[in-house]
Design a protein around this nucleic acid. Structure first.
Lengths: 194, 194, 194, 194
DNA sequence: TATGAATGAGGTTTCATTCAT
DNA sequence: TATGAATGAAACCTCATTCAT
């Protein structure tokens, strides 16, 4: 418990510092101070600074995937499921701005070294969307010629870009509602033409 | 002229090196070697390493905007104009993978320090799309309730994500064609429901 | 007893680790693991890492001196005594290669910090040889002009260098026999010219 | 020239600092200060701290071998040649005490990593002695059953140990003369019994 | 303009040692 | 006695930047 607490506070401090300064401009010492531990303690829980970023990512994905799956429980209509996914995504972004910044901005850079790392959680996130789209094709709600995986990726692109815009603007207003229209637009595109 | 050549080869070397290693893992010395100049020479043309990245960005945007505007000459139908923008975007990505990697990956991160810099070129890129969407609303082709600017941003998100996916996958196949469908889908979403 | 056992296993682990990695590249934690105790436990028996090296040395010298003295019991002829000393020295080296490595390699360096420490055991080792040489002078077997102490030191140099050579070569063959000739040579040099 | 000067002053500073503090307790910053250069400059001439030690060794061996070979020019009698080698060895030790300390003390430790490095210069030093001994066997001055290489090693052991003793004792008196007797003794041992 | 040798600030990481349990 | 999680000082090395030529 105590140990897990320490790991958690280091991760949390890392998110804040990374968001503020960017990964490469963040000093391990700053993270340590913000986490209330000694510099060396960080290395008891993480292999190195890079690992810290990776763990932030994996940890976040775990949380988000859990929240997504929880929210989806009981929703069966593919369109509603997609809406839920989008809504939860923005809710997460809105409730943890720093986390959002790290994920949208720093993660990209890291994808460089993520190539050699475990990107599966991201794959699972995409799968969640892709499967739902596939399901929509099966129910006849979505056009059969749609490439589910790629479309899922495109949808992620939309969400990510809007999240990025929101994260970058200092005066923060609601993100979810404002984006509803665009998502609707996107979903409309999926629909079978009458 | 000779001076301009040198500036150009430095920029070009920078693109390659940044793409390969990422901004923070790129050494000025590597760029110098690849450009065939001495380390110090770089500082005759650029204020510092960061400035080099900014100039790569500004330069790229200039080029892309020029190519976009050239391609758009003579096209009036909003839908066709949007299609052209998407096509050219992917053409650029496909023909200069390194440039694409820098733009999709490093640029994000740079928004951080770009806050204090001139982001206008990116704004112009968005405007190009936003205006075309606006135009589509005026012609009655696109639904009037659409938020042009935000939709442009979403469209950029789709293109950027697909470009990123393409840039990250080692075995590179055509990107444009494969993405056509998704763009169609997106454009369909814009249309006024019959 | 149990306490003494722990001290002994720490010392023994230290010898192995020091031999493998050298003093400065040895980690206290490695020694602890190899000894089957916790890191902190080491500090219950030794002042610090340096002290551990010193104790290894003192301990080894105790053992070797004991073996030497035991072997010498009953031998009176100075030449035979010297031969015994050499034989036992190599026997120790051969039977505990790790110990030999620590003594030949690390000990040297330690003389630096041993200046402020108890070098007496090494002095006793030298004395053992010096006294035997002196005795040989008294019996008229060795030339009277010989400087016993310095000659003892030279003899130690021969043994140490041969031991070092042996310790450094991966494929280990007998050391004692091969070195007999050289020792004979050295002893011959001591003899009164006929 | 200027460049070579800088390399030389770094090496020379390194010898001093290593001798004073031992390799592992020497800070690169200290060497830099003593050499009158910036810390980073050292890395323009040497790969790392360890390389610095290796280069000190290689450099020294070059010098010593050169001095040995120069002194040997014109001497043909094997016994006289050996005497010359010993004399020059001690002369070097006496004239550069710091260098002697580094070579006798630090080098051993390094032999650990020297295993993977270029020990050839040391091999050449041994060869110089071994060949002379071999030559003495050919002239019938030395006993034919002598193992030249190993005996050379033993002789080196004597010289090294005496040098070490001298280097470790604070009040320094002549080393060469005092050691003459021992070397004589050693050489006597080599001689064919009448 | 161009060079590239030199600079030196600064950060990641290690690891001996401590101390609350 | 014994533990081992936590500490935090310390140092190697990198690399952007400068400046004498």
């Amino acid at each position: 418990m105590a140990q897990s607490d320490k790991r958690r506070s280091i991760l949390s401090a890392a998110v804040g510092v990374f968001a503020r300064n960017g990964f490469y401009n963040s000093k391990v010492a700053d993270i340590a101070r913000e986490a209330g531990v000694a510099d060396g303690t960080i290395y008891l829980y993480f292999k190195n600074k890079e690992d810290l970023l990776i763990q932030v990512f994996l940890d976040t994905m775990d949380t988000v995937l859990f929240e997504q799956e929880t929210a989806l429980r009981g929703i069966t209509d593919p369109i509603e499921r997609l809406r839920s996914i989008v809504r939860v995504h923005f809710a997460v972004v809105e409730s943890r701005p720093a986390l959002a910044e790290v994920i949208t901005v720093e993660l990209r850079q890291s994808s460089r070294f993520m190539r050699s790392t475990d990107l599966k959680p991201f794959g699972r996130y995409l799968s969640l969307m892709a499967k739902t789209i596939e399901q929509g094709k099966n129910t006849g709600q979505f056009a059969p010629e749609i490439d589910s995986r790629r479309t899922a990726r495109a949808l992620f692109g939309v969400m990510d870009e809007l999240a990025l815009e929101w994260a970058m603007v200092p005066d923060r207003h609601g993100i979810g509602e404002a984006s509803d229209a665009i998502i609707n637009l996107f979903l409309n595109g999926l629909r079978v033409r009458p």
